[in-house]
């Protein structure tokens, strides 16, 4: 069968299936299970109407259950078994994790990432949003800063491998060192600080996101409150920090927490740049080292990550809801 025909057939079956499901299930409910006739007609109509929302919710609830709830439970269950998946070892994987030095390094590094990346990305985003607000070429500047958002993490990492290259003819850091007469070094091998070089890549990517959202929020501030503050004698810094920033605090929190959640998921940058060597592991990249080798251990790491993301996620959703009100 030609792919086109296959596609069309899939669409027909998919859409037809949906229509068939909703139509058929409602028909079944109204005609067979609780028919609107006979002695109990009133009761039947009321019951049918109580069941009806669940007919419509069922596909979504089912999909969420199969693809979201089950994997969580299943992963947790898997994390209680050893690498072969045959022997139940209780919390053994978790105990081993906490006893391992690399895991502790990964947790510490991840903590650094979570603190530094959202802070810097939000700060730069806010700064750029404010500085470009009234410029004629502000929109061009903003598009340029937003562009890294469109690059995949792996792609961005490849770009930054050139920047951090140990060859002074390629890497700008070593080119500068060379010009100043300093010895060539590999920035990615400078312990501890190499973490920040990796973080900067994500900051570079995420600043555009923070900038776009915060720029819109800044424009939403009523002009009169700013004019009132100017008449009240506030200087530009006071207007910014005492009038503008507090008014967009909700948006800043949403941006901050959104980036935090993203940071807890990123592994590509570390994986591509250092492979977790030289003390740069973070939890997702650490998880990758066990994946396909020891699924029990890997799912245990995944579960730790999920527990870390959860509180931030809840805060993020609450704040976003409050914003919408």
């Amino acid at each position: 069968m030609s792919p086109v025909l296959q596609g069309i057939l899939t669409i027909i079956i998919g859409v037809g299936g949906c229509v068939g499901y909703f139509y058929g299930s409602n028909l079944l409910l109204d005609k067979v299970i609780f028919p609107a006739r006979g002695a109990n007609i009133g009761r039947n109509i009321n019951r049918a109407n109580q069941v009806r929302p669940w007919l419509f919710l069922f596909p979504a609830v089912f999909a969420l259950g199969v693809y979201l709830a089950y994997p969580v439970v299943g992963s947790f269950y898997r994390s209680l078994f050893d690498r072969s998946g045959a022997n139940f070892i209780g919390l053994g994987n978790y105990v081993d994790l906490f006893n391992e030095g690399t895991f502790r390094v990964a947790v510490f590094n991840n903590l650094l990432w979570v603190l530094v990346v959202p802070a810097l990305a939000t700060f730069f985003g806010l700064l750029i949003a404010q500085l470009t607000d009234r410029l004629r070429w502000g929109n061009i500047a903003k598009s340029l800063i937003f562009m890294p958002m469109a690059i995949s993490f792996v792609g961005a990492s490849l770009i930054w491998r050139f920047v951090y290259s140990a060859n002074p003819d390629i890497g700008i850091i070593n080119a500068l060192r060379d010009a100043m007469g300093l010895a060539v070094l590999d920035p990615l091998q400078v312990q501890f600080w190499n973490n920040f070089f990796l973080m900067f890549i994500l900051v570079w990517i995420q600043t555009g996101f923070a900038m776009v959202i915060l720029s819109a929020a800044l424009r939403g501030i009523p002009e009169e409150t700013i004019e009132a503050a100017i008449i009240d004698g506030a200087n530009p810094f006071q207007v910014f920090f005492k009038i503008k920033v507090p008014q967009i605090m909700g948006t800043i929190v949403v941006v901050w927490t959104t980036i935090t959640i993203l940071v807890l998921k990123v592994f590509d940058i570390v994986y591509t740049m250092t492979g977790g060597n030289f003390g740069t592991h973070i939890l997702p990249s650490y998880m990758m080292t066990y994946m396909f080798r020891d699924d029990g251990r890997a799912t245990a790491v995944a579960f730790v990550i999920m527990l870390l993301v959860l509180p931030v996620m809840i805060w993020n959703i609450r704040q976003a809801r409050a914003e919408m009100r």
Partner: peptide
Amino acid sequence: IPPSQRGIAMVFQSYALYPHM
């Protein structure tokens, strides 16, 4: 002379209260 040093105060149509204060 900037607004704050002119010895004026202004009441806006939209009140222009600082919503977070």
